[in-house]
Design a protein around this nucleic acid. Structure first.
Lengths: 149, 149
DNA sequence: CCTTGAACCTCCAGCCGCTGGAAGTCCCAT
DNA sequence: ATGGGACTTCCAGCGGCTGGAGGTTCAAGG
């Protein structure tokens, strides 16, 4: 018989905090743990694996619905895995999207920062760029960069 | 006198929903709007600029504290802009970080997806990789990939 | 065996950044 | 004048946790 793990052991093993583990149980992400005589939660390797699965999937940016789907799949080992494959490739597309957008943001920030001459806020490109909400077309050029409140 | 804008006009002009605009006012991100006789909010160009600033900064991923700081700076046009520059470069570093992590995730997902032979969930690399919470070192290899609940 | 103090328990409230609904009022084109 | 959209306020709820209060249990050291 494998030694039972306390919630703290599980937390250390997976990097998920005890409070979060309890919350996962509450929300049905984890099945209820066994209890010791005194009422403390006692976990086995199955919980460890499932929690690791969840944490890993979250780290990879899967949406909760996708994680639920993957967990469902995982508990039916005889089923076809094309769905899992689809979920993973959807996730890749999503990440590609985010990478693209982040790069664009980076480029804009870079432009902002490098064109800041270090003078006075009134002429600061960082502020001006942000105020330029029309994306390159300033709606009201005769006013200063910003309202005072 | 510039025509006053209704909250809906402002929403259309900036892409921020009316409810969100009201919430920004509530939380002090925007100064209270003027009112018509009947109590409807009436905005001028200053609000338009400030709201655009906020939206743009949020799109660029600035934290709320950073946005507040930028707004403060923007309302003191005679101040030194080095703080704005610092905030922008901090933001760039943050984005670089996120880009790095996203690329790593992408690589892992790619590995998962390409090694999925399309068979049965029991042998699916996608599921297995996720269950492999130890990051390449499986804690309990004699068990199946996943607990059933 | 007893003590101590860390870890655990439950319950509940709060965080951020909005979003939506209900119920009522206003504005303006026809 | 009227109809229906846009507006008003208030309040509750979302996801994904996090933290505190107040009480109990566990395990190591004496």
């Amino acid at each position: 018989m494998t030694a039972m793990l306390s919630i703290g052991d599980l937390a250390r093993a997976t990097g998920v905090k005890p409070t979060t583990i309890r919350w996962y149980e509450q929300e049905g992400w984890l099945p209820p743990a066994a209890r010791t005589e005194g009422g403390h939660r006692a976990y086995g390797p199955a919980h460890l694996r499932r929690l690791g699965f969840i944490r890993h999937a979250r780290e990879l940016g899967f949406q909760s619905a996708a994680i639920r789907a993957l967990l469902d799949l995982a508990s039916h080992p005889e089923a076809d895995c094309s769905q899992a494959h689809d979920l993973a490739t959807a996730q890749i597309r999503d990440i590609d999207d985010r990478l693209r957008r982040l790069s664009a943001l980076r480029a804009e920030l870079e432009r902002m920062a490098t064109s800041c001459a270090g003078g006075v806020v009134g002429e600061c490109r960082v502020i001006e760029t942000l105020a330029d909400f029309g994306h390159g077309h300033c709606g009201d050029p005769e006013h200063g960069a910003m309202p005072r409140a």
